[in-house]
């Protein structure tokens, strides 16, 4: 086995609220977000967060979906049969074997973002593993406008992973390191991962410190995303969901360009989609029982 350190690897984890008794809940709903890079499962009791898991997506979507939900239920005594309504979302949403319905990430992120950041959120930028979405929503988390860019990995978690690996920097440290530069360098000219990678290699050979290369890449990513946001007209409050939402180097630069601060949350920004799915699950179960 190779002992090469995997710098891109972020922490997988699960959580559940031990103070809650799921057997007392009227509606148990679940949302499972199968992204190209990561998968999350969220379980809610009458619209309150009960459990979640966050892990890497495997090669097989149905398998990843099963693993995600089983991990979220671990130690709770709950089984799949105890869940009244499950929603699949994300890139692999049609491949969630136990889902009662598949719903787009757009709808789920708006709904989940509304729950996580509060009803003042009007613009949500989701920077996921392989695409980037800009969503404008109302105070109930209903989508008013959206735009999705899924043509290339620029501005995505996958691109950032490739970069962290190239520079041998742990992915959690990329943001902070990129902010430690004294003077902001010119952004790399290309945000296409393949080109940006060779551009970065060239800069390293020229003797640029890693922090400066990271700064140049994070700012290119931020700029690219801001141009995408222009089309849907950013309204505050503004929030960033998805894995890149945890990268301060990109978030700070987006805030600077927009002149707006992004809301923060105590929730994990990566679970927004699954959370939205679970909320829809509850609403749809109520509708079904009527």
């Amino acid at each position: 086995m190779s002992d090469k350190k995997e710098f891109w690897r972020w922490k997988e984890y699960r959580w559940h609220d031990e103070a809650k008794d799921w057997k007392a809940a009227d509606i148990v709903s679940a949302g499972v977000d199968i992204g190209s890079v990561s998968s999350q499962a969220v379980i809610m009791l009458d619209g309150e967060l009960f459990a979640f898991s966050n892990q890497r997506t495997g090669f097989d979507s149905p398998e990843s979906a099963n693993k995600a939900i089983i991990w979220a239920m671990e130690g709770t005594g709950m089984t799949l049969d105890d869940i009244h309504f499950s929603v699949g979302t994300g890139y692999g949403r049609v491949n969630v074997p136990f889902a009662d319905k598949a719903i787009t990430e757009i709808a789920c992120h708006a709904r989940g973002g509304n729950f996580m950041y509060g009803s003042s959120v009007r613009t949500i930028l989701d920077m996921g593993g392989q695409d980037c979405k800009a969503i404008r929503c109302d105070e109930r988390g209903k989508v008013e406008a959206f735009l999705m860019n899924d043509k290339c990995a620029a501005g995505t978690g996958r691109g950032m992973e490739v970069f962290a690996d190239l520079l041998s920097v742990p992915i959690e440290d990329v943001g902070e390191m990129s902010l430690s530069v004294e003077k902001e360098p010119e952004p790399v000219s290309s945000t296409c991962v393949v080109f940006a990678k060779s551009e970065a290699s060239a800069l390293l050979r020229e003797g640029w410190p890693k922090t400066k290369v990271l700064a140049a890449y994070c700012s290119a990513m931020a700029h690219r995303v801001v141009t995408l946001l222009e089309r849907i007209e950013v309204e505050k409050d503004f929030a960033i969901t998805g894995g890149i939402g945890k990268n301060s180097g990109v978030v700070k630069r987006i805030e600077k360009e927009l002149g707006l601060e992004a809301l923060t949350t105590t929730y994990d920004s990566q679970i927004a989609g699954a959370l939205g799915g679970a909320l829809f699950g509850m609403a749809l179960e109520k509708k079904r029982r009527k």
Partner: peptide, 14 residues
């Protein structure tokens, strides 16, 4: 809802 389908690339917005 205004649903924008398409993409942006080096040559423009589509």
């Amino acid at each position: 809802m205004i649903a924008n389908y398409g993409y942006k690339d080096g040559s423009g917005d589509f």
